[in-house]
């Protein structure tokens, strides 16, 4: 079957690239946030709930105020509040951070659905994009290379986070709390406080990731908005070996896999559409199996994590 457009198979490649940048944005923010949280020695499994909560609050605030960026900020604040709740509760003695995360996952989605009911109908202003395809005369290329502003922010944030972990006092303290809690205590830092602040910062980023879903792509608020991106982003942190730059590339890879189905459809290959839709999940499984080993410990894993102990 010949491709139906004038760009031929190049159309598929460009559509996958453009789709990758679009779809990867929430993965990128959630995984950067979770990387920061896990570097401090905690796992926040509740980020899916934070993501949905961020999407809802961003949409509501953008609709009510008319400013999408104010929506992004409020989404971040809502995420930080969830992070504070997670961090605070997990600091209590005999509380497991994984269990708290699951509880907050359910709480976040439930609360967002409840509070978000009135905002399913109205239309909120959307976030702007950067036209990377302006040089081209082809409308397909221009459409595919419209990169959203939040993706650009995320792409800058990844190296910034890596730098911060190595070049700031806070970076060193966070890594110490995540790798050797006794050492952090001996230095006089409160391990609970360091972890709670890291979880708040991680929640902020996940909330911002959620605002992307409602304010850019798909760009509306409804209850089926997130299909587990918040959970997959946590798995993604493991493949990325807790490295922010790797988070960026792995997010792109996931985004590309998700964009594969629609891209093929755009050139007329509609059969097996649902099969391609499963690509990111299959990719998750393949990467999980390929990167696991019964013999080796996970390289790069913060040793205080409950999952690596």
């Amino acid at each position: 079957m010949p491709p139906a457009t004038d760009l031929g198979w190049w159309g598929v490649v460009i559509a996958v690239l453009g789709g990758a940048a679009r779809v990867s944005t929430p993965y990128l923010f959630v995984s950067l946030g979770e990387t920061l949280t896990e570097k401090s020695g905690r796992v926040n499994l509740g980020l899916e709930g934070t993501l949905v909560m961020g999407a809802m609050s961003a949409y509501a605030v953008a609709y009510l105020s008319g400013s999408p960026w104010l929506g992004v900020l409020v989404a971040g604040a809502a995420g930080a509040a969830f992070g504070l709740l997670h961090g605070g509760v997990s600091t209590l003695p005999r509380v497991n951070d994984i269990a708290v995360g699951i509880a907050l996952f359910l709480l976040g989605t439930g609360l967002a659905f409840y509070l978000g009911k009135p905002f399913i109908e109205p239309v909120a202003p959307r976030l702007p994009h950067v036209a990377l395809g302006a040089w081209s005369a082809s409308p397909q290329i221009r459409a595919a290379l419209e990169v959203n502003a939040l993706f650009v922010v995320g792409a800058v944030l990844a190296p910034l986070l890596l730098w911060g972990l190595g070049h700031t006092r806070w970076g060193l303290v966070v890594r110490t709390a995540g790798d050797n809690a006794d050492a952090a205590k001996a230095l006089g830092y409160s391990v609970g406080a360091v972890r709670t602040l890291s979880t708040m910062a991680g929640g902020f980023l996940a909330g911002v990731g959620g605002s992307f879903l409602s304010l850019y792509y798909p760009g509306t608020w409804n209850e089926g908005l997130s299909s587990g991106q918040g959970l997959m982003a946590i798995a993604l942190v493991i493949f990325a070996r807790w490295n922010p730059i790797h988070c960026f590339w792995v997010s792109l890879l996931f985004g590309g896999a998700t964009a594969l189905g629609p891209a093929l459809q755009s050139v007329g290959i509609a059969s097996n559409y649902y099969l391609y839709g499963a690509a990111p999940y299959v990719l998750t499984l393949i990467l999980l199996i390929a990167s696991s080993s019964p013999r080796h410990a996970l390289a790069g894993a913060p040793s205080e994590l409950t999952i690596s102990k």
């Binding site: 060193l172 790798d179 050797n180």
Partner: peptide, 11 residues
């Protein structure tokens, strides 16, 4: 040891 194993000597 109370060192942080994933960090460098300088850190």
């Amino acid at each position: 040891f109370t060192l942080v194993p994933s960090m460098t000597v300088a850190e």
